[in-house]
Amino acid sequence: MNEPQQTNFFLPVLLIALALVVWFGFQARQLNQERAQLASLRSNQDSTYTNAQKMRAQLDSLAAGTQKLASAGNKNAQTVVNALQQRGITINAEAKPAQAQ
């Protein structure tokens, strides 16, 4: 009389699987867009980084020259070197310039 009704799980499982595929596709697309934006930001900063490296090399060269003058007895250069040492900045006159990466 009352026969147990057989349930069909195909449609709910199909909908869940479809939702997962759509969700993973959306996440993959978002991650690819963010990756492209990060690559763009990095390429925009390359010129600034290169200029900063050049300026650092010039500053190191200037500081090394000042240190050499101070070692040779120049009073003004000794004053500058002493002021830098008081601020915790040490100058290595024999240091080779850093290579660009």
Rank of each mutant, 00 (worst) to 15 (best):
Q101S: 13
F10R: 11
Q37I: 00
Q30M: 00
N76I: 05
R56T: 14
E94F: 06
V21K: 02
A28E: 05
V13K: 11
E94G: 14
A72L: 03
S43L: 13
T50E: 06
F24E: 04
Q45P: 02
Q33R: 04
A19L: 04
S47T: 15
K75H: 06
T50S: 12
D46G: 09
Q45F: 04
L84H: 04
T50W: 06
G25T: 00
R29A: 00
M1H: 13
G65D: 08
A28G: 12
N74M: 09
F9C: 07
A64V: 04
P4W: 00
A17T: 14
N74W: 05
L69C: 10
M1G: 15
G73S: 00
V22M: 05
I91W: 00
Q30I: 00
M55N: 14
A28C: 08
F24W: 09
I16E: 11
A70E: 01
P4V: 00
Q27S: 08
L69T: 03
M1V: 14
L69E: 14
E94K: 15
A64E: 04
A100C: 08
S47E: 15
Q58S: 15
P4K: 01
A19G: 02
Q86D: 13
N44D: 15
Q53C: 04
A57P: 08
F26R: 04
E3G: 14
Q45V: 03
L62Q: 05
A83N: 13
N51M: 09
A57N: 11
A57G: 13
N2H: 14
L15K: 11
A100W: 09
F24V: 06
S47I: 10
R56W: 09
K75R: 09
R87V: 07
I16D: 11
F26W: 12
Q27G: 01
L18M: 13
N82V: 03
Q78N: 08
A77L: 01
A28P: 03
G73E: 01
I89H: 06
T66F: 03
V21S: 04
F10T: 11
A100H: 11
T79S: 15
A83E: 06
A70R: 01
Q85M: 12
Q5F: 07
A77W: 02
L69H: 04
A36S: 12
Q45S: 10
L59V: 08
Q78D: 14
N92K: 03
T79I: 07
S61M: 12
N8T: 09
L59P: 07
V21Y: 04
T90R: 15
Q85H: 12
F24C: 06
E34I: 12
Q78R: 09
R87F: 07
Q27H: 02
D60E: 06
D60P: 03
S47F: 09
R87Y: 12
L62E: 05
N44P: 08
A100G: 11
S47M: 10
A52R: 06
Q27K: 00
G65S: 10
R87E: 14
A70L: 02
S47K: 07
L11I: 05
P12Q: 05
